[in-house]
Design a protein around this nucleic acid. Structure first.
Lengths: 141, 141
DNA sequence: CGCCGGCACTTGCATTTCGCAAGCGCTGCT
DNA sequence: AGCAGCGCTTGCGAAATGCAAGTGCCGGCG
């Protein structure tokens, strides 16, 4: 937890998320976990933005320490590791959706499908529930 | 705009906001503009988190370049400068409110008043409207 | 008219973080 | 027994950050 660390800067809620997510990479890992069903180290490494392996290892460790992500051995494959969001991590979804809406509006080159933005505007709770459901599916399978 | 820069990493909406806000400081400036009615360089400098002056100058310049903030001379005091959010910047409010809600829930030492969180849960559009109104007030006065 | 204080930056330099490439250790498969 | 895949570590040059001091402009006051 940020506030347990020595370098806590304030108790402002904006600052609180910045202590964990205030860099160019951490939120991309959350995105991959939440929207893209990724669970393995190599999958994060393969994302478009090309995170380097040392940074990835560092960020996963921080996310785990901050209670956003948990790590477990892959039962079906001993040398693999499964990363998944905790409940706290899943609760980032509303933030992620607001971010998507904002970028959808202000980024002329966005890759967000129009249909997704429409659904976001029309019935956000339902969309959120669908995303969490499909995440559960992924984690079961 | 991030995508006009050479170092654009992808067209993902999450990445889009990270290109502008992906560091430990930028969003604190937005917070000060949006929630605390700050407009002057020296006011940002005085915030709890103690941003250093060279970083502040750099971030304000980037925010202006990205169309989130605009800069104008203070008519009442020639050596002062007024910074204000553009419409695009004001539209960050929903993101900021979601962040506040998340931190309010997960940060045991948060300084967010309980009443604020309640209002956030109960009638968010109204709260958002109030915040924007009081921002208009500040900018008029 | 000249000086002084406030304000918005700039500059220089030490420290930290990042980015890239190579390598390591363990596991399962053949 | 050997090899390939996977998660992660290490080393090093480059870039970003943090800190402190300095610069230039404006307004106010004597």
């Amino acid at each position: 937890m940020p506030h347990n660390s020595a370098r806590c800067r304030s108790n402002c809620p904006i600052n609180f998320v910045l202590e964990t997510f205030g860099d160019k990479w951490t939120l991309l890992i959350v995105r991959d976990l939440l929207f893209h069903g990724k669970r393995h180290y190599g999958e994060f490494l393969a994302s478009d933005e090309q995170i380097s392996t040392n940074i990835l290892a560092d960020r996963l460790q921080r996310l785990e320490r901050d209670g956003v992500v948990e790590k477990q051995a892959d039962p079906s494959h001993g040398s693999k590791v499964i990363y998944r969001l905790t409940q706290k991590g899943r609760e980032l979804l509303p933030i992620m959706l607001e971010i998507t809406a904002w970028s959808g509006k202000h980024d002329s080159r966005t890759n967000v499908p129009k249909a997704f933005l429409k659904q976001l505007a029309k019935d956000r709770p339902r969309l959120a529930a669908q995303i969490l459901d499909s995440l559960d599916e992924t984690e079961k399978g």
